[in-house]
Every structure is written in C-alpha cells, then in structure tokens.
C-alpha cells in the first residue's frame, strides 16, 4: 500500500465528464446565438430595409446637384455658338450644323459622365452599408469570443466611412468649335482702320470714314 492518491478517482472523472457536457451544451448555445445573430444582421442590412429607394435617393441627389451645372454650361455654350455663328455670318451654314452637333455631343458625353459618377458613388454607398454589416458581424463574433474582441476593436475603426463624391463645381465642360475665321479678318481690318485713324462702322450709325469693304 501507500504511494500517492491521485485526483483521478471516479468522482473526479465524473466532474470532468460533467464539465465536458456543460462545455458541449454551452457550445451548442453559442452556435445558436451566432446563427440567430447572423440571421438578424442579414435581415437588418438586407434589401427589405436598404432597398433601391434608399440608394435612389442618394443617386438622385447627386444628379440634381451636378446635372444642372451641365445644363447651365450647355445653355451658355449654345448661346455662345449662336452668337459666334451670327458674328461670323455663318448661322445658316454647314459649319453651324457641325458646331451645334458638336455641342450636343459634348452635352451627351458630359451627362453620361455625371451619371456614371453618380452610379459609382451609389456603389460606394452600398460598400459603406456592407461595411456596416461586416462590423455588425465582427461585433457578434467578438461578443461570443473575448479573444476576438481586442483585435476587432483595433481593426474596425472607421471602416464604414463613405468616400466623398466630388462636390466641387464642375470645371469648363464645353469647348465649342472655334467659329469665325472671318472675325479674324475683320479684326485685322479694324486694326488697320485704327492705324489709319478711322473708326470702323458701328452696328448702328456711321463711322468716321468711308467704307473700305
């Protein structure tokens, strides 16, 4: 007889089995909580809650902010083309058709660019909401596992930031064709008249000198 009495008697084995059973039950509860939590998060961030109406509002705001700038510049470009054509005396000419077509083309391209940017920004918004969903998952797992909590806290800071759309006024979008080579000639003529001490004929009334053609 004698020797050490170890704690591995039947009571202790029973205790360890009881602990193992409790661990198994706790793991089953943990699994159930994770599944329930994930389902809740999926539902919260799903299409039913963050549907197209949510994103459409953002996209429309972007278009309502940027498209009027395009349209303003388009109107101005059209007016300038009209004035330039009139000044050049080419309002009814093939160059006029070409100039107007060119402005229309630029308008279409600029509008497409603005719409594309708005669409891309909606994509960024979706990513931002997706990032919120990911953070919700991270917190779910961090709640269940204390080892994850610390690293998650460090990594999650500002994950959900939405990249900012360009809100600066759009630059010069339209570059109409240069119209009025004849304007260059008339400018040259006006300078010649000035050099000769004569005023060119104004739009109304008479100039100080005779007509030089």
């Amino acid at each position: 007889m004698g020797g050490k009495s170890s704690p591995s008697n039947s009571q202790m084995v029973q205790f360890q089995m009881q602990q193992a059973q409790e661990a198994r039950e706790k793991e089953a509860q943990r699994k159930a909580r994770l599944e329930h939590g994930k389902t809740t998060i999926d539902s919260l961030f799903g299409d039913e809650n963050f549907g197209n109406d949510f994103y459409d509002k953002y996209e429309n705001a972007q278009l309502n902010f940027n498209l009027p700038q395009v349209w303003d510049q388009y109107d101005r470009a059209r007016r300038n083309v009209t004035y330039d054509l009139a000044r050049a005396g080419t309002l009814r000419s093939s160059i006029a058709n070409e100039a107007v077509a060119d402005v229309e083309n630029q308008k279409a391209m600029n509008e497409a660019s603005v719409r594309t940017k708005a669409d891309a920004d909606v994509g960024a918004l979706r990513t931002s909401i997706g990032s919120q969903q990911q953070q919700a998952y991270n917190q779910l797992y961090a709640t269940e596992d204390p080892d994850i909590a610390a690293t998650t806290a460090i990594n999650m800071v500002q994950n959900a930031q939405l990249s900012q759309p360009n809100l600066n006024p759009l630059g010069e979008l339209f570059r109409p064709l240069v119209i009025g080579a004849t304007g260059l000639a008339s400018g040259y003529q006006e300078q010649g008249n000035i050099n000769r001490g004569m005023n060119p004929r104004p739009p109304t009334g008479r100039g100080s000198g005779q007509d030089y053609g």
Partner: peptide
C-alpha cells in the same frame, strides 16, 4: 455614415471591456 461609426465605436468599446474582463 458618421453616426454608424460612432455607434459601432461605442459598442465596441463596451464589448472589448467585457472581453477583457472575461479574459
């Protein structure tokens, strides 16, 4: 976006505190 960040930050601080207590 800012609001969501604030909410996540605050709750994460609580979760981390409790995680640390548990550890």
């Amino acid at each position: 976006a800012q609001r969501a960040d604030d909410l996540f930050r605050k709750s994460m601080q609580d979760i981390r505190l409790q995680g640390d207590i548990r550890q």
